[in-house]
Simulated assay, not measured.
Amino acid sequence: MTDDVSHDKRALRAELRERRRICTAKEREEFNTGVTANLIELAQRLGSTSIAAYLSTTDEPETRGFLRWACDHDITVLLPISRADGLLDWAPYDGEEEDKDLIGMPAPTSEVLGPIAINDVDLIIVPAASVDHSGMRMGWGRGYFDKTLGSMETKPPVYAVIFDNEYVAEVPTEIHDQPVDGIVTPSGIVTITEHN
């Protein structure tokens, strides 16, 4: 069973990577404008004062415009730095230099705060390959965000950022996979689970 799910995930990830790769520059620019506007709307709607987010890679919906806006509006932003043990450290975003972490993901160069720093935020923005209508998130296979979300005793609202066609009826799911409360896409915000 797990081998089948694992295979299904690999196949779906490959298809999604290819779809993202063949996006035109014009499409990508329009998508990024929509994602930035919708992330800003979400943060304003929730009255967020501190956010855990991430620096997008070239194939992901762009997060930097939103991160700059958050900093300009005195919202504390924490960004992840991958660790060898599969956990995430967090560091404040200052809009300045970026580096690569140990798995090659974009990371801030500011002071590292450790894994529990995320416990103080009031909104978490995560990357995803796909999210289904029940809120199950399929990541890119490294498990960092699943471990982080799974280890939190209480979580603020968690939203994944994806392209519109990556919000699907169902994604292959394993026991460790963590759901999200909603998604942000270029065309809008979908809240799947109301957060109390």
Rank of each mutant, 00 (worst) to 15 (best):
L12C: 06
L16I: 15
L16V: 11
R17P: 02
R17S: 05
E18I: 01
E18D: 13
E18P: 00
R21S: 03
R21W: 01
R21A: 11
I22R: 06
C23T: 12
T24C: 04
A25G: 05
R28P: 10
R28W: 06
R28T: 15
E29P: 14
E30L: 10
E30F: 05
F31M: 13
N32A: 09
A37F: 02
I40G: 09
I40Y: 11
E41C: 09
E41Y: 09
L42E: 12
A43E: 10
Q44C: 03
R45S: 08
R45E: 13
L46T: 10
L46N: 05
S48K: 01
S50L: 03
S50I: 05
A52I: 05
L55E: 12
L55R: 13
S56D: 12
T57C: 08
G65C: 10
F66V: 04
F66A: 06
R68C: 04
A70C: 12
D74E: 12
T76Q: 12
V77S: 13
L79I: 15
I81W: 02
R83F: 02
R83T: 04
G86M: 03
L87I: 00
L87T: 01
W90H: 09
W90K: 06
A91C: 09
A91Q: 07
Y93V: 00
Y93L: 01
G95P: 00
E96V: 03
E98T: 09
E98C: 03
D99H: 13
K100L: 11
L102I: 15
I103F: 09
M105V: 11
P106F: 01
A107P: 10
A107I: 13
S110W: 00
E111W: 08
L113N: 13
A117G: 07
I118L: 11
I118V: 15
I118Q: 12
N119K: 12
N119R: 12
D120Q: 09
D120W: 11
V121R: 10
V121T: 13
I124P: 08
V126Q: 08
A129F: 03
S130H: 07
S130C: 15
V131R: 08
D132F: 03
S134D: 14
G135T: 07
R137S: 06
R137E: 07
R137H: 03
